[in-house]
Design a protein around this nucleic acid. Structure first.
Lengths: 128, 128
DNA sequence: GATAAATGCAACCATAAAGTTGCAAATTGT
DNA sequence: ACAATTTGCAACTTTATGGTTGCATTTATC
């Protein structure tokens, strides 16, 4: 008789993060938007609180204005930035709600990790 | 006389985040690694603290084992996970240091944003 | 009203990313 | 020894990404 597969342990997320995993698709979108050096720098500039035009945001990068526009569009699709039309220019500003939610997810992961470490520590100590 | 360009305001990141922007390339790598629903779920599972094999981690996804291996490799390149060889299986576990740094960057961005809002609020009040 | 500035739009290109399949190699259990 | 498990490796396909260039469009300024 051939041996049977002994693999059937489907791991699941801990309760603390399961709620955030439910929104993992939108959250992954936020992380993906931040996952590019150019876009991360754009966000870092915008977090100063002002509203900047595309031409202004292009100054300081070594890519074309159209490329910056594309990056801003990616950030906008992820809900990280907003644009406001002002005359002939389009001003961009931060929309920190999604970033805040991403931060909370990373916090939850760190918390769960600490809990797991504590459990392991207590287990080791009880075996001494 | 033709008018001259009046654009020369190169925006710069505020002091609070400039230090983190310096490491923006590695940080962007971490965000990019988290920027995929499958990988985000893998991280959520691993944050429970255990060490899981590739076959175990594949259970629960709807993609092939080889695809999961590729995702784990991406997370490993970003320094988010570590692997340990145990007999014929390869166990993966979380490496929370990079995730923690990413969380700190999001915190810094949120802080700068709050500072900017406060400045604006004080300016408006002083004009009344 | 002519000119310059800021942006929008579209086509295009090169490379990377996400997934698949097929097969070889190492390790474990009977 | 043999069979089953787990993984590794390589080739391949499809689609997304990041970037470019060229030109049209809207808006301000003189």
């Amino acid at each position: 008789m051939p041996s049977k597969p002994r693999n059937p342990s489907p791991p699941s997320s801990p309760a603390g993060v399961s709620g955030l995993v439910r929104a993992s698709d939108t959250l992954a979108g936020v992380f993906a938007a931040l996952g590019d050096p150019t876009r991360l720098k754009l966000v870092a500039v915008l977090c100063a609180g002002g509203a900047f035009s595309i031409a202004q945001l292009t100054t300081g990068t070594d890519i074309s204005r159209q490329a910056v526009t594309k990056h801003l569009q990616v950030l906008s699709d992820a809900g990280v930035v907003r644009d406001v039309k002002m005359g002939r220019e389009r001003l961009w500003q931060l929309e920190p709600a999604q970033i805040d939610e991403a931060r909370r997810m990373l916090e939850a992961i760190g918390r769960e990790w600490d809990v797991a470490l504590n459990k392991l520590k207590m287990f080791v100590e009880s075996a001494e």
